[in-house]
Amino acid sequence: MVPRDMDAANQDAGLLAQFAQGDRMAAQTLTDRLAPRILRFAARMLGDRTEAEDVTQDTMLRLWRIAPEWHDTGIPPAAWLFRVAANLCTDRLRRRRSGPAEMPDLPDDTPGVDARMMQTARAAALDTALAALPERQRQAVILRHLEGLSNPEIAAIMMIGVEAVESLTARGKRNLAALLSGQKDELGYEDDH
């Protein structure tokens, strides 16, 4: 974990301690720091904004409840939140039991589409491809490449070894590349590997 992340983790832990002592501003700061990340993660895991918001609220509620008993367990508050959110997402995905989502409709007039629309289309295509990945691969890829966490952090969140994280990430990326290769003309994707 790089020092910047350590600082962030220490700040989160400090804010959590302030929250436990009744500081309301600490709750606001923690919400602004952590809730967007959890929401992004849950939205990509579940592919449903409403469910992702419920998971985010539930995850933050668990953080508030554990605040008085929080102690240094070797995992920063943000990583602990990702672990909780991942478990909640897994529960919902198991209940849902739906098949893989279809690829989204993409704009036909690709040559004339502006850069912003292309960005949006790529993001949508990635979200759909992520939804088609096995759950553990999806989780690892999101945490590594979209949330920017290090492999040791992801290993702590997923409670597996660093090598297993690397393997999951690599397999996830290979599957993503395969899923997205069919749209390389529309989305400017060229898989040279």
């Binding site: 790529r122 590349a177 997205l180 994707y189 060229e190």
Partner: peptide, 8 residues
Amino acid sequence: PLDLFFDA
């Protein structure tokens, strides 16, 4: 090439 999608 996946970076295009991750960045987006």
